[in-house]
Design a protein around this nucleic acid. Sequence first.
DNA 1: ATTAATTTTTAGGTTAGTCTAAAAATAAAA
DNA 2: TTTTATTTTTAGACTAACCTAAAAATTAAT
Lengths: 222, 222
Amino acid sequence: MKKISQTEENYLKAIFSVSESKGKAASTNEISKEIQISAASVTDMFKRLSEKGLIDYKKHKGVKLTEKGNQHATKLVRKHRLWEVFLVEKLNFDWGEVHDIAEELEHINSDELINRLDKYLDYPKFDPHGDPIPDADGIFEIRSQILLSELDLEKTGIVVGVQEHAPAFLEYLDRMKLGLGSSITILEKFDFDQSLRVKIEKKELTLTAKVAQNLFIQTKEK
Amino acid sequence: MKKISQTEENYLKAIFSVSESKGKAASTNEISKEIQISAASVTDMFKRLSEKGLIDYKKHKGVKLTEKGNQHATKLVRKHRLWEVFLVEKLNFDWGEVHDIAEELEHINSDELINRLDKYLDYPKFDPHGDPIPDADGIFEIRSQILLSELDLEKTGIVVGVQEHAPAFLEYLDRMKLGLGSSITILEKFDFDQSLRVKIEKKELTLTAKVAQNLFIQTKEK
DNA sequence: ATTAATTTTTAGGTTAGTCTAAAAATAAAA
DNA sequence: TTTTATTTTTAGACTAACCTAAAAATTAAT
Ligand SMILES: [Mn+2]
Ligand SMILES: [Mn+2]
Ligand SMILES: [Mn+2]
Ligand SMILES: [Mn+2]
């Protein structure tokens, strides 16, 4: 039961995120890109995490989280997202400012702390970016959602999340008065550049393909 | 303007605490004892901190914080104590449980975060143990206080702080219904073991010298 | 003023986590 | 099915933080 270092935790999260909750293996290069560290160093760390029983690693085959590794990664995601809720709901941070701070806060090591925080925030199910928050047992809802770019002409949907978390993107959405809960109707689709003419609440505006590919939408017919 | 690591921060705090705010130099051995690290390692770190302009170090002469080092240490104390207030006031932790968690939280690196937290907590002046909290400019009140062991016979004082922060001591105080704000009157002093017979609110009880030497008291005549 | 005790520094070593360059394995193309 | 390109691993090095044991400096006692 060795301690898991902050560095190791960041790798676990990267592996979790690259292999999307579970299932497919994460490759050396994918992790290298995700956390901006050389592939050689990633191989090194794979060996160490494997040694600790947090991942299954076979040379040239990529890695998968073990049950233990998955549990730890899930707890990190829980902590990250709960802290984001705290920062936005209680300290009035903007949703674009919280990620980097949560990236540090997620490593604070206290179950008591995180469970009390959860209670204090009234057990939120989603973070400020619409991402689901695992509960104390690691269970979280997977919401049925599609990308705005996949929404059919003349249909209406509600924004429930963002794929891209970059501050620049989130600030752009703020300026467009687009946020979680916004209602969007597709008025027209332009094939030559995949841009969209949409109606948001009362206003009409044009969204680029890039924007449409980074907004998660929920439609009425679940 | 190099980054200051978590480890370096812990040394800065230790130096700050050993040299009591400012003034006298902190010796290698004192720091070694304070943070439970070998004297050889402490010497190593003194060189590095000195290199970074955070302390003045001359061989065999101990160290003193520079202005820059003092500012950084003061900010750490501010963060530590504000987080402690948060944990007790908002998350309902007991005052004996918060120190270790704050020991981690104090290293989160965001001025925006700490200043918003300060506001959220309504700019508290003292932490749950009665220790003063530096403001955003590093200024903090030094309260006039004495130890309970120094209080004269038949005098009355109010508990305003604790010297010892160990959970066992704080739990003992809880069990004795003693906390910040408690009023204590000295009824009798026993010379042979320095124990005291005191009155707290309505009840009479005996306190050992050890307890009396770890409670800070404020008397009416400031 | 010597000697003895204590404190501090140096020397040499270890581990975690990183890097670059080169070698080996795998996957893609011809 | 060879050849070529890409991915992954290995080899060798570095830095931050630690350690123990030994040397040097300071302080305290005789
Ligand atoms: Mn992180
Ligand atoms: Mn988020
Ligand atoms: Mn600390
Ligand atoms: Mn405190």
